[in-house]
Amino acid sequence: MKSLHAQHHALADTSYQLTVLSEAEAAGARLPAFAHKLHESGLLPLRPTELAVMQVNVGKMCNQTCRHCHVDAGPDRTEIMTRATMQLCLDALAQTTIPVVDLTGGAPEMNPDFRWFVEQISALGRQTIVRCNLTIIVANPKYHDLPEFFAQHGVRVVSSLPHFSAARTDAQRGEGVFGRSIRALRMLNAVGYGVEGSGLLLDLVYNPSGAFLPGRQVGLEREFKQRLLREHEVVFNSLLAITNLPISRFMEYLLESGNYESYMQKLVAAYNPVAAANVMCRSTLSIGWDGQLYDCDFNQQLALNVAKNAPQHIRFFDATALQDRAIVINQHCYGCTAGAGSSCGGATA
């Protein structure tokens, strides 16, 4: 499967995605503007709280082409962060006390400077999270030692596994992905990841393989733990339930399958003001592969940069100016405020 970008698909153009999102009429019922909902909840303009996570997207290159990917990542994407831009991120990090750097992609490990970057973050005494797609570990012998490398630097590994059944996982992430993911999980377990008392955290990300919302995180976690242990002798720490946001390839799936309007209505109907108050963008700064600044990784993929009064590039990082910004919102934000809420850390309410 090719990325939307490689297909020259209309949805590869982020302005077209924003047009689709802005169409208020859905299935005969008007979808209220997200800004209106936030206003009703007393949250408009949406302001940052304390900056807790620097999330760095180190490139769109990936060994997988998942059907729901909001980054439109894949083997055909060549956008990748340079070491010079990584250094700018480190310079900014050093000016702050931000405790966590969350590395995402693509497959972040495919960036040739990935290991160097993790070492530098460690040297600054900050925690690294890597959003590892699991299969990268077994994709090529040069990645086989990633579990040891992660352990050496106390990296918290957060990995997508949308289901404990092969069929549902493969339907979303590609043929054979489940089997390769289980192999990689066993390699992570073998060095202590997910094993009680090891101090090495391995969390799994559940996101629905279709046009429905995630159920309760705690119930899903229990099911995943039982099934993965019983059927595959795999252990992990926590399950993070994440809602699919209606952008990029998941938007394409929704439109193609005729589910777009009903999905948007589901998200709107499930709006939860408590989740709205806890959205991750309030405590996150998202940095693109080219150093541009965003409120979150979803805004990044829609090319919605941080508000104009804030610095636009990591080179001009200024914590105070960023703190004064209003967070940029749009209709896709309903994905983070539905039900129990959704963030890169799972449920929020």
Partner: peptide, 12 residues
């Protein structure tokens, strides 16, 4: 059907 999927059930 929706609820079963949301609660983590699969097709089987």
């Amino acid at each position: 059907t929706v609820d079963s999927l949301q609660k983590g059930a699969d097709e089987a």
